[in-house]
């Protein structure tokens, strides 16, 4: 589904991603962890070309992401994305936030788009907020709307870029619950997070990054019990025992 081969990325002189090789299968939930500045977010943002790669090969859903003949808008229809700061459209209601892309990108009629939107709002547990504006919602509610917005495009892949980092602790759980449900239903997910409990419970595979490299890839049981890399061990000891 997602295939990185020898991918490198530079921001000017800064080498953000170094020789990335990573394959993610359909239905897999891959959680990317690592210290800040390690390139986790950049890696995820390359998948839908919010960031462009400098060299190497990146194939998503059978399409070469950085090929100049690729219709990126078409590829992006199949990839939902959830951001750290939600990025809901403040001038639109919750319902309008969710129906915009299905109507304008897929050409779904308004009535059907609204029904789909309501279905996903039920799913994330806040159908009563359909006509509210995002500012009237708590962080956790906003992030659940953002997830519903992504799902309404019926994507094959969902990307999560630190979805709970901007939430206050009380609302983190409700967002993680929605993500867990999604994972159980077989969605292909790539998740950047610091929520180790979530990673341990839901991930099929943990990818540990540091300084732009993938240092370790392992199933969660193995990774958390006995990380192979010294750097991963240090990272885990710091975030788990504080």
């Amino acid at each position: 589904m997602i295939y990185f081969h020898q991918v490198n990325k530079h921001y000017g002189d800064f080498h953000v991603l170094k020789d990335i090789n990573l394959t993610i299968e359909q239905g897999e939930v891959v959680v990317i962890i690592g210290p800040s500045g390690s390139g986790k977010s950049t890696l995820v943002r390359c998948i839908n070309r919010l960031e462009t790669i400098t060299s190497g090969e990146l194939i998503v859903d059978g399409v070469k992401v950085n090929d100049k003949n690729t219709d990126i808008n078409k590829l992006r229809r199949n990839i939902g994305m959830v951001f750290q700061h939600f990025n809901l459209y403040p001038h639109k209601t919750v319902l309008q936030n969710i129906t915009l892309a299905p109507m304008k990108v897929l050409g779904v009629p308004e009535k059907e788009a609204k029904e789909t939107a309501m279905y996903y709002l039920e799913k994330v547990g806040i159908p009563d907020k359909a006509n509210a504006y995002p500012t009237a919602l708590s962080g956790g509610q906003q992030q659940r709307v953002a997830i519903a917005r992504g799902l309404a495009m019926k994507p094959k892949i969902m990307l999560f870029d630190e979805p709970t980092s901007a939430l206050d602790p009380e609302t983190i759980g409700e967002v993680l619950d929605v993500m867990k449900t999604l994972a159980r239903e077989g969605m292909t997910m790539v998740v950047v997070t610091h929520e180790m409990g979530f990673a341990r419970e839901v991930a099929d595979r943990i990818v540990f990054m540091d300084q732009g490299r993938i240092l370790e890839e392992a199933p969660p049981e193995q990774f958390f019990a006995n990380p192979r890399e010294e750097r991963a061990r240090l990272f885990l000891s710091r975030i788990l025992n504080h």
Partner: peptide, 21 residues
């Protein structure tokens, strides 16, 4: 905020659609 354009584009809207809507 930059995230608005990113959210709009990542949902498949074209640059002009993202600008307009």
């Amino acid at each position: 905020p930059k995230g608005q354009m990113e959210a709009a584009r990542s949902s498949g809207l074209t640059y002009l659609q993202a600008m307009w809507y």
